[in-house]
């Protein structure tokens, strides 16, 4: 079996001085779709933040898309994030520019130069999330579900080895959640690895998959029935 995209061994995660999670042992392989569930305040977001370099890993070992989280340097963080796609609960689009320019910014920021290939790429990812006709709009002119699709499209731009989605449906109504979930499922079927934090149990039941649970400073795998 090939090397896991993400693994953590005996890792502890701190928010400043307070311990959030300890003895974290997680491993995610290429092509998997993994849920991360747990009540609010159990450390889901801190866990995600550690993975994309917003929180330092202070104890234990961790490796994500070939970056060692323990020795991760400040200046390497942008390059780690280029190999990840991050989707947030609050979309985090740049509100001062259109959807196309949002995507264009990411491409330019990550070193793309050729105008033609950038346009092709933007078309491609917008097509994947079914937003091809909305490229000229500003984020505030879009509904929440549409914004989240754009955010997912943005996460796909650099063909990431792992997509981290931190409660991507948290701000959406149930029906829109299902639509966004369909998009994520499609992407997963195309071979992308996805780690999705959520507390939307309806989605878990509808799209069962490997599930990790955060509880009492621990992360452990749960079998769907016991959820």
């Amino acid at each position: 079996m090939s090397k896991p995209v993400l693994f953590l061994k005996n890792a502890s995660i701190f928010q400043r001085e307070s311990l959030i999670l300890s003895e974290v042992n997680v491993s995610i392989n290429k092509g998997e779709f993994v849920y991360l569930i747990g009540k609010t305040g159990t450390g889901k977001s801190s866990f995600m933040k550690t993975l994309y370099g917003d929180l330092p890993l202070q104890e234990g070992d961790g490796e994500i898309v070939d970056f060692d989280l323990r020795t991760l340097k400040e200046k390497d963080i942008p390059f780690l994030r280029r190999k990840l796609g991050v989707v947030f609960q609050d979309f985090k689009l740049l509100n001062d520019r259109t959807v196309n320019d949002n995507l264009l910014f990411v491409l330019k920021a990550t070193g793309w130069k050729d105008k033609k290939s950038m346009e092709t790429k933007i078309d491609e990812v917008l097509g994947k999330v079914g937003m091809k006709t909305k490229g000229f709009k500003y984020p505030y002119q879009l509904s929440g579900g549409e914004q989240q699709r754009v955010a997912i499209a943005r996460a796909l731009l650099n063909d990431p080895e792992l997509i981290l989605a931190d409660e991507p449906t948290g701000n959406l109504d149930p029906q829109t959640s299902v639509e966004v979930m369909e998009v994520l499922q499609d992407i997963n079927k195309n071979g992308n690895t996805i780690l999705m934090a959520t507390h939307d149990y309806a989605l878990l039941l509808k799209y069962p998959s490997k599930t990790l649970k955060c509880d009492e400073n621990q992360i452990f795998e749960v079998v769907q029935k016991t959820v």
Binding site: K75, P78, R82, V86, K92, F105, V106, A109
Partner: peptide, 17 residues
């Protein structure tokens, strides 16, 4: 400031931002 943070989240380097 939130725009700056978002830009960092998508992998832009500090000098680029």
């Amino acid at each position: 400031r939130f725009t700056i943070k978002t830009m960092q989240m998508v992998g832009a380097t500090k000098s680029f931002i």
